[in-house]
Nucleic acid binder design. Sequence first.
DNA 1: ATTATAATGGAAAGCGCTTTCGTTAGGAGT
DNA 2: ACTCCTAACGAAAGCGCTTTCCATTATAAT
Lengths: 331, 331
Amino acid sequence: MTTIYDIAKRSGYSITTVSKVLNNYKNVSEKAKRAVLEAVEELGYTPNSSARTLATNKSWMIGVVFAEHLGVGIAHPFFSEVIEGFKKHVELYNYDLLFVSRHMGMQRETYKHLKHRGVDGVIVVQSFGDDFIGQEESPIPAVYIDLPLETPGSVYSDNRHGAQLAVDYLVELGHRKIAHIMGEQTSFAGIERAKGFKKAMANHGLDLPEHYLVNGGFFSYEGGREAMIRLLALQDRPTAVVVAGDNMALGAMKVIKEAGLSVPGDISLIGFDDIAIAKHVDPPLTTIRQDKELIGRQAAIMLLNQINGDDSGMTKVVPVQLIKRESCRPI
Amino acid sequence: MTTIYDIAKRSGYSITTVSKVLNNYKNVSEKAKRAVLEAVEELGYTPNSSARTLATNKSWMIGVVFAEHLGVGIAHPFFSEVIEGFKKHVELYNYDLLFVSRHMGMQRETYKHLKHRGVDGVIVVQSFGDDFIGQEESPIPAVYIDLPLETPGSVYSDNRHGAQLAVDYLVELGHRKIAHIMGEQTSFAGIERAKGFKKAMANHGLDLPEHYLVNGGFFSYEGGREAMIRLLALQDRPTAVVVAGDNMALGAMKVIKEAGLSVPGDISLIGFDDIAIAKHVDPPLTTIRQDKELIGRQAAIMLLNQINGDDSGMTKVVPVQLIKRESCRPI
DNA sequence: ATTATAATGGAAAGCGCTTTCGTTAGGAGT
DNA sequence: ACTCCTAACGAAAGCGCTTTCCATTATAAT
């Protein structure tokens, strides 16, 4: 490995000067600068980030922690896009992303691991907050997706408003018997969307029978299926259902078709997320779009602020948008 | 930050002994071990990986490089699953994954960056090989997905056989006029699948008009659309088409529907990849499944071998499988 | 009791870099 | 000719850890 010492010898300057050149200090002559840079080129020198990190206590890495309870990890259709948006932004500032292994069930370990790695910040995704929160010791700057907290920054979509938009639209189409397949009621997104839904129903003065609220679990296709099966079994079927996640909506759609019914002919369906598939299914899914890229970017901005000490807002709510496609129709 | 020195002082032993305990050396007494571990616990000590890396020249990080020409980065439906499989395996051996920023268009820089970071190995994905190959200097152990090379390890699906399976199946269903929407013909997968397709057609003694071979570009939805439009414009339309990627197949399917035709009523469609969506579209897409998880795992095994010096095979071909769903039917 | 041997512990160098602070030389000012 | 600055450079310490090699002590063998 060629080091700063090799460059020093080759260029005839000291390692101090070499280091200064490499770090753009001002008090080096043009001559020295040229000599050093030339040596760097000739020797194909690459600085060693561990050494630098050790000396400066700055790693230029950001840790990414995924909770694994959904099983798919990185391949998650929603979160992977958020991460991508996040990555695009932090890259601009020369950060790399470190995906740490999760030491399942041992949140304490995850924190320690990040500490061990000396990451400058952390983005936490798909978590229940058990990973990280309340680590007494000097905290690592962190930002949370879909998890509202007092302490650090967190960013999430305007879930309530999203649910509201869905209901409004359905009502506008003339629906009155509207059900909701809820997301996991221990998750922030699940809870908020359900709240928004209920509120909107109330606003419209619509009746909301208890059995119109069914739990679809962790936003999975299977969960959507099961929930829809229950809805279909009702004697007083809804004419439309707001589903708290696109994957669940797809499961629901499938069940409806299997029952020989049609979407939107018999039942209108509206999802949440606007994952990549949504527009490609048949019928294309009307849904509430989360701006994944923006969520990621906002998280990045927030985290970078925290890292740089200019602590700004604690919480950022990202607007959502109704995407009309073909899974809903007037009654 | 609490260091090994703090532990030494607290436990009454030297830093040497502390280090030995922490690294499971055998020549330390039980007593010392206990004392040290106790101090570690009390002080909440976390070792510093930069320092360790600096001293040992081993980072326990594996670099991940994505070519970005597909734009979606991490969110790619196929590669993200491969990476996930890879991650699951290397995690077992305590490696973390470092996603480096890509310095687009400057392959040289990517290599240097990885060197800078001191990663123990690299997985290269979605690349044309321009990133990495032929870096004269001490090479970093690397494994390539979908890119066959002499030098380092590479793993990919049995693309030819996959295309073959597709044709065989279609022929079995009675089709004779079979077209192929090819993947980008500068990409390994695109080339191989096209080869397999032609070979299979020849094997069956089937006629293959030149215009039955249409290029769909970089495996995108849009590319599939455009290719299918051209196919539809033919006077002598195919009754079935083998599409080199699922995303393209979805694009093609959409175009067919838009033209008022039916899949599989008028045209049978068969994709490649079996991405998550494939089973959820309407009709569910018959496709050649790549075992993404296995590809990832094989890559991990190979890379770990390289890292540990037990260089084994250079190339691993992962079997594919025909998944029959509902986008094909007998003629 | 004496010597050989094994078990245990520590001093110190080194990994590659940054950064403080001091030194030197040259130019400006009088 | 002399002092005073400033600009340019380098010595050395330090970041937190590993590892070699030597010193010491305990144990076994005679």
